[in-house]
Simulated assay, not measured.
Amino acid sequence: MDGPSGSGKSSASRGVARALGLRYLDTGAMYRAITWWMIEQGVDLGDAATIAARSHEPVLTSGTDPDGPTIHVDGVDVGEPIRGSEVTAAVSVVAAVPEVRARLVAMQREIIGSGDIVVEGRDIGTVVAPAATVKVYLTASAEARAQRRTAELTGTTVEAQQAAMATRDTLDSTRKTDPLSMAVGAVELDTTALNLEEVIAAVLGLIKERT
C-alpha cells in the first residue's frame, strides 16, 4: 500500500492486516528510524556523502504485529521519538540518499519473505514488491490529509501541515531514486470522503477480488 502522507496508509494497513491475520510492516518507520539515528549522531543532513557512508551503522529491528508494531535502533525503542517534528522535517532528505534506500529495501524484502504481509510505504508496489498480489495507492485531498495529520499532533495548524506536506510530497515524488508514484497494476483509492472502516472494507474487497 503506497501513498503520500496523511492518506491513511498506516491505519488502513494495520486494519487490513488485523482483519486477515497477517503481518504488517511500516517501511516509513524504518526511514524515520535511520533519520533519528543520524540526528542523534550529529550527522550533517546536508551532507549526502556522510549519510551514505554511515547508513550501514545503525542496527534496525522492525516488529510486524499490527496490534503493536515496533521499531528499534541499536536495541532502543524509538517508536515515539521518530514521530517528532525534527525527524518528520528531515526524513525525506535522508530517504533520498540511494545508499539508505538500497539498505532498507533489502531489509524490507527480507522481512516480506514469501509474503502473507501488508506493507505500507511510498515505493512498495514500484520497487520493494512489484510482484505483490494486490497493490493499492491511497490518496486524498491536500486539505483532508492536513486535517488528519493536525488531529494527530499538538501545537500545529491545518495550514502549517498542508504546507509541510506539500514540501514533502515534492521531495518524495521528484527524488532520483525510487520516487513516490503509483505502481503499474495498482488500484487508486481516494480516501477523502471515506472513514477508516470504509477504507479497510474497500481494500478487503479488492483483496477478495484479486485472490
Rank of each mutant, 00 (worst) to 15 (best):
T139F: 13
S55G: 07
V59N: 10
M165T: 10
G115Y: 11
A48F: 13
L171A: 15
V187K: 02
V134P: 02
A131H: 12
T177C: 13
A90Q: 14
A193G: 09
A102C: 09
E86L: 15
A183F: 01
V73G: 06
T177W: 09
A131D: 14
T70I: 01
D190K: 00
V100Q: 09
V76A: 13
S5W: 03
E80R: 14
Q161V: 07
V59C: 05
D123P: 07
P98Y: 12
G205W: 05
K135T: 03
A90E: 13
R103L: 09
P69D: 01
P58I: 05
A19M: 11
A33I: 12
D2N: 02
R14Q: 15
G68I: 00
N195K: 06
R145W: 04
R103T: 05
E120D: 15
D74M: 08
Y137P: 01
I200C: 00
T191Y: 00
R32V: 12
A19P: 12
L138C: 02
A102H: 14
G185Y: 03
V73Q: 07
V119T: 10
D172M: 08
D44G: 07
V94D: 11
E197T: 11
R149P: 02
S7P: 03
L189F: 00
G205A: 02
L138Y: 01
R175D: 08
T133F: 07
E198H: 06
H56I: 09
S13H: 03
A146W: 02
A163P: 05
G63M: 05
E57K: 05
S85D: 14
I82M: 12
R148E: 13
A193H: 13
I82W: 08
E159I: 05
I51V: 14
D169M: 12
G205D: 09
T35R: 09
T177V: 15
T139Y: 13
P66S: 02
V158N: 08
T139I: 14
R14D: 02
E110N: 12
V43R: 08
G205Y: 03
S5P: 08
L196C: 06
Y31I: 14
L194H: 00
R101M: 09
A193S: 14
P66K: 00
V78Y: 07
R149V: 06
L196G: 01
M107S: 12
S141R: 10
A146Q: 05
G28A: 15
P98F: 10
A12H: 02
E188T: 06
S114L: 11
L60A: 07
V105P: 03
G185Q: 04
P69T: 01
R23I: 08
V136E: 00
A183T: 02
V158C: 07
L189M: 01
E99R: 11
I71F: 01
I34T: 13
S55D: 07
A95E: 06
T174S: 12
P98S: 11
G63P: 01
T170I: 09
N195P: 02
I200T: 00
D77T: 07
A201I: 04
A193F: 10
G75A: 12
A201G: 05
T192H: 07
T167A: 14
E159P: 03
S55N: 11
A49T: 15
E99Q: 14
E57Q: 09
D26I: 04
S181D: 07
R101S: 05
P69M: 02
A202Q: 06
S11K: 04
T157K: 05
A48Q: 14
S5A: 15
D26W: 06
K208E: 14
L171Q: 15
